[in-house]
Amino acid sequence: MADEPGRWIRRYRAAPDAAVQLVCLPHAGGAASYYRPMAMALFPSVEVLAVQYPGRQDRLDEPCSGDFAELTERTLAAVRPALDRPVALFGHSMGSLLAFELAKRLEGEGAGPLALFASGGRPPDRPVRHSSRPVTDEELISEVAALEGTDRRLLDSEDMRVLFLPALRADYRTMATYRFDGTRLSCPLVSLTGDGDHLVTSDDAAGWAGHTTGGFDLHVFPGGHFYLTDRWDAVAEVVTRRLGAQVPTGTG
């Protein structure tokens, strides 16, 4: 079955007159709906295309991906037909690596993004490697709870665990297959992080500078790994400011 854009892309606030599209890639265990606030904050100047990975929410009946290269190619194949304006990429945590790989492929096709926003992620040469040993549900839940990005009621609900944990485990397996080939981007790269993120240090966030020959900016916000949850407007301002400077004259 082909990967139609309609199965992968969520437009929570369509903006057909926006000059730029922003493709947003979720974190491990995450879903497209995480970016609903981003879509609202950027409307109407930027149209957010939030990616829905297989195996979660309305795609629960589909198997999760277990291979990073496969996920990259399937995401690109699904996203490409939805792009009809200049595009930028935004990824959080695992999504930052996926955004990086998509940017590489788009640049290779001569359709490189205006910018890459890498949020809450380590750079490609030192990605997060989750434990390869089997872990219990309780261990996994404790790890997720420590990142303070998931509602505790969700983690405490047995019914919700059944829906949530398989996708998280699959994404961890997917992350373990990531391999960096040394390629650098030519587009501007913006790294964003929380000052209390124990998973991605400020040095990690700054390390993205070596992965582009374009301009680089680093923005540090108050908060932990999921600093975005309380900072959507501030993050949207960073995005808008960068893309306002990058949109070609006459676009839109």
Rank of each mutant, 00 (worst) to 15 (best):
E62A: 03
L114K: 13
V20D: 06
A236N: 08
S202Q: 15
P16G: 03
L199G: 07
T229H: 13
P188E: 00
G66W: 05
S96Q: 07
D217I: 07
D181S: 01
S202H: 10
R36S: 04
A146H: 08
L218M: 02
Q52R: 09
A77I: 09
V87C: 13
S186T: 14
V46W: 14
D151T: 04
A118T: 07
Y34I: 04
A41F: 15
L114Y: 02
Q57N: 09
G224H: 12
A50W: 03
T193R: 08
V200K: 13
A50E: 13
R85Y: 02
R173P: 10
T251R: 15
T174Y: 14
T75K: 03
S96W: 01
F43E: 08
E143M: 10
G214I: 01
F221D: 12
L102D: 12
P26N: 04
R59N: 04
Y35I: 01
G182Y: 02
A145N: 07
D230S: 08
G182E: 15
A50T: 10
T136G: 00
F226N: 10
I9F: 15
A28C: 03
G214D: 14
G223H: 04
P166H: 00
A245H: 14
R122V: 12
G196N: 14
L102I: 12
A31I: 09
S119M: 03
H198Q: 11
D203L: 12
E73A: 08
S131W: 00
D217S: 15
R173T: 13
G95H: 07
Y12E: 02
S93Y: 04
V20G: 03
A176P: 12
P222S: 02
A234H: 15
P86L: 00
H225P: 07
T201L: 07
G121S: 01
L192H: 05
L106R: 13
E158N: 03
P113S: 00
A209F: 01
Y53R: 11
R161Y: 02
G108I: 00
S202C: 09
P248M: 07
R7K: 07
G244Q: 13
D3H: 11
L42E: 05
R11M: 05
T72L: 12
V190R: 10
G207W: 14
A103W: 02
V20Y: 06
S132T: 15
P248R: 11
G250K: 01
E139F: 01
G250P: 05
R241E: 09
T251V: 08
A167N: 10
G223W: 06
T72M: 08
P188C: 01
M38E: 05
E109P: 12
A14L: 07
D217T: 10
P134Q: 00
L154M: 12
A145I: 03
R36M: 12
G215S: 14
L192T: 05
L147H: 05
L189V: 06
V190I: 14
V238Y: 03
Y178F: 13
H219S: 09
G91E: 07
S45C: 08
L114G: 10
I141D: 00
S96M: 07
C187L: 02
D156R: 05
F90R: 09
L218V: 08
G112Q: 09
T213V: 05
D17K: 01
H219N: 15
S33F: 13
V238E: 09
H27E: 10
